[in-house]
Nucleic acid binder design. Sequence first.
DNA 1: AGCACGCCGACT
DNA 2: GTCGGCGTGCTC
Length: 727
Amino acid sequence: MNRDSPRPRTAAVLVPMPAERPYTYAVPDGMQVEPGSIVQVPLGPREVAGVVWDADAGAVDPKKLRPITRAFDCPPLSKDMRRFIDWVADYTLSPPGLAARMALRAPAAFDPEPWIEGLKPTGNAPDRMTDARRRVMELIGDGFAWTRSGLAHAAGVTGAVIDGMRAQGCFEDTLLPPRPVVAPPDPAYGGQDLNPDQQAAADRLAATVKAGGYSVTLLDGVTGSGKTEVYFEAIAAAVEAGRQVLVLLPEIALTHAFLERFQQRFGAKPAEWHSDLAPRMRERVWRQVAEGQIRVVAGARSALFLPFNELGLIVVDEEHDPAFKQEDRVFYNARDMAVVRGHIGAFPVILSSATPSVETRVNAQTGRYARVALPSRYAEAALPTLASIDLRRHPPARGGFLSPPLIEAMRRTLEKEEQSLLFLNRRGYAPLTLCRVCGHRFQCPDCSSWLVEHRFRGQLVCHQCGHAEKKPEACPECGTLDHLVACGPGVERIAEEVVAHFPDARTIVLSSDLVGGVRRLRLELEAVAKGEADIVIGTQLVAKGHNFPNMTLVGVVDADLGLANGDPRAAERTFQLLSQVTGRAGRTGKKSRGLLQTYQPDHPVMRAIVSGDAESFYEREIAERERAGLPPFGRLAGIIVSAATRAEAESHARGLRRAAPAANDIHVLGPAEAPLSLVGGRHRFRLLVQGERKSHLQGFVREMLAAGPKVRGSVRVQVDIDPQSFL
DNA sequence: AGCACGCCGACT
DNA sequence: GTCGGCGTGCTC
């Protein structure tokens, strides 16, 4: 080896895989890279896209050192974005490489979009004028360039006409810049009719945005109070100030209505970002966000990792929604990470919800977050009258699940030619099937949860892992024929009961099982909004943001469902879901009702919903959690142990708990606080670790994992509680 | 995360 | 005798 050979220039590159630190690559002579540059590097047998990182390129065996293949012609990831990625990786105890991977999920976007072939008018007229040619000439009078197909379409002629004119020298070939995904939003485009409360709220938010700097504001008001219109004014202020805006929505696939309303206010749609965006569109959006062409993005949680360079506002709509939680690879809550992103970028964050999460309410109460409350529904929209139906006093008929008062209310609603919604958060026909003779229960062979009968499909389906089998006629255990019995209701079974009561009503079941997928679902929801159904029976997807103008009765079939599952957030979740679903009624000023069937009419959740007194419910929840030492009052990490069987998961969790190092100010909370749950077909057990300082807590968790039993890739760490205390 | 290498069951 | 399951290990 020649001692005098110059040491090559190197760069630290974060590669999109679970690497604990950046890898070192040689920078070829003449290549310019800086922190944030997106580069192509060899990694094992393949080539991947990585990001040049700020860290010092550590010493590495020179034999291993390989050169960067190329630097992409692409705006570098901003310093803020790099800090954000590091912060997320650190906070969630994930390898930084995996966090970076989330920001690099648009493979072909790192090369500039190609320019489009276009035709520029030369001013020459064609030799012979025809009608078709005249129409084209009229359009190109201003001298701007067109695409061939665009011009043909606009002029109402075929491409052949354009080709002919081109041959005669009417055009010269040119290249047009790539077309923007969306037109820029115009903050001055549409006025909104805001009532004085809304106007005051909008003014406060706009002032916060204009002042700039980090802040978090909770925008709080009942369903129908016009929160969206209010935060639109904050968006307008940010756009006016030349900043980019991100609106996070829990489930964008069904939020068509949001895009429409945005367009009415801003004259253009926001760019969309979610997992089922076509790959080509995905790349264009990524690129145009990086280049600043796109000013407003409406997206799912992953939009947080788009390469904004001028981000000046994040709005998190329905901030309480569990869909903001990512629970694979990097475990994070997008609402919390939005707050962190705002802190790093020194800009405001708005959290909007009719039913805020308890932790956000607490942060607003303690003054850590500002709070802007909208006191009432706007315009003619009145709140529905809400009542519970005590199922002990009004039991359903034998074999049925609908109580007489609910059936009576539906009958009256039908008579008035208005719509009813029956809500039951359970898909299929019956959640449990058993044999009347030997007691055999049908269980999933893969994950041991009960199989749910789907009578329409003639199948037994596992709702955890998707396993499906044909429903047999004989019991597989004792062989007896025709003695299988369905236990409990699902939406299909409720539909059966409804049809028996109201054979002439137009009844529809809406759940994710609907044949025809999301597209069909969207169509059916629109049809319902137009009044093309009398009775809708739906799972939670009917609870989300749709507007049904003629819906005047909402019946909750089993309001207790979900209260008894041992989750520390069960009451809060049920309250949020029931508020949302009862909020579907009464948006048009017609007298409307919400009825909750329950065995526990005195349960705090029922009382809060019926009385509308959310305030006391929150106070009670907060006190309850304080007692249990649960979030947001302590800093917690969750260690998620998952295994194929319940017994295995429990045993792994016990082993991990035993491995917990002794520390005075750190506690491992046990099974009562973190029960087993089934996610993705795997039994999960969550150990909650409570401590006071982030680094301390994380060190503790790392030690525990290192000393614990080997459980083969099934241990995940989630630190999702109150990142504010760590900022 | 991919992807290759490496040892034990049912088949062209 | 081979094809193929996924268990461990590596990537600058």
